[in-house]
């Protein structure tokens, strides 16, 4: 059983990458908008479906075909990916304008409740438009490559790589750009940010945009990894996402990154002992453990 460990850890890096991308966005909105967004998983689903829609469109038009080497996708994925990120970001900002903005002064739990409503609306709009049957990103069986003693498919290496790149981008953004610093400032102290003259509504829009774009990326990568997507994709990801955010510490996007990886690895390693159906239960177990032992998470402050 233990010989499988390195392989499971490798799989954990892959699913951890997907969870991390979702968890970062969740952590950002949590720390800047001060509520747990239960619709975040469905933003991942939205991104996955928008990309899929464009992929189907390109296939139908007979353009941008082919694949990149051993990867399961080709040039079509580039515009599909970017358009999906942009589309999801715009949608999230729109939802904020219509719903959460009107609840800015309400108790945080009202925003939480509203986000549950948004989650059901998003998911069922997708269900209405695309149906309940899964959509396929690709059907080809992939050969695995041997790297450092574990087997990984080219797609999986890509997922880990892209997630790493996006994480680095986010770090640079938060550390060196004016908007990034303002986001950190707002997470620290929203009232002071107002007093300082920071245009808080604009920063909030940026937060939604970035968080949603990262979620969309996570959703698309999940589609690439699982080869298919269903409308339940995001809702099922909610537990691991929350587990990652709480494990890493609310208010710390870097914590969310670590949390995402840890949850991913825990889930995969657990398959050596428990049925794969119970992966979300593992994430939940870790979540409860953290809430009992150390509610502020590994890196959290409050």
């Amino acid at each position: 059983m233990w010989e499988r460990l390195p392989q499971l850890v490798a799989y954990g890096l892959v699913s951890g990458s997907v969870i991390t991308l979702g968890a970062i966005g969740l952590s950002l909105t949590y720390s800047i908008l001060k509520f747990a967004n239960f619709a975040h998983g469905d933003l991942m689903t939205t991104g996955a479906y928008i990309a899929c829609g464009f992929l189907l469109l390109f296939r139908f038009l007979g353009v941008l075909g082919g694949r990149f080497g051993k990867l399961s996708f080709g040039p079509a994925m580039i515009p599909a990916f970017l358009l999906a990120l942009a589309g999801t970001a715009i949608l999230a900002i729109l939802i904020d304008r219509l719903v959460y903005r009107r609840l800015r002064r309400a108790r945080p739990v009202m925003r939480l409740m509203a986000s549950v409503g948004v989650a059901f609306v998003l998911r069922n709009v997708i269900l209405f438009s695309a149906g309940a049957d899964p959509y396929y990103y690709s059907r080809k069986i992939q050969r695995a490559i041997y790297i450092l003693g574990v087997k990984l498919k080219a797609d999986q290496l890509f997922i880990i790589g892209l997630a790493a790149v996006l994480v680095v981008f986010l770090h640079l953004f938060l550390s060196y750009t004016k908007v990034g610093k303002a986001m950190r400032a707002m997470a620290d102290n929203p009232e002071l940010a107002q007093v300082t003259g920071i245009n808080t509504e604009r920063i909030i829009a940026w937060t939604w945009g970035i968080g949603a774009a990262l979620a969309a990326a996570g959703g698309i990568l999940a589609g690439i990894e699982n080869k298919l997507i269903t409308p339940e994709l995001g809702w099922q990801a909610l537990l691991p996402l929350f587990a990652a955010v709480i494990l890493g510490g609310i208010g710390s996007p870097y914590g969310a990154m670590a949390g995402g990886m840890l949850i991913g690895m825990a889930e995969e390693v657990s398959t050596a002992f428990v049925s794969t159906a119970y992966k979300p239960a593992i994430a939940f177990g870790i979540l409860v453990l953290m809430l009992i032992l150390r509610p502020q998470g590994l890196f959290g402050r409050r």
């Binding site: 009202m110 409503g117 269900l127």
Partner: peptide, 16 residues
């Protein structure tokens, strides 16, 4: 799905 969307929108509307 459409009916669920309606119920969701009703909740959001009530909250606001």
């Amino acid at each position: 799905a459409l009916r669920i969307v309606l119920v969701g929108l009703i909740l959001i509307a009530i909250l606001i």
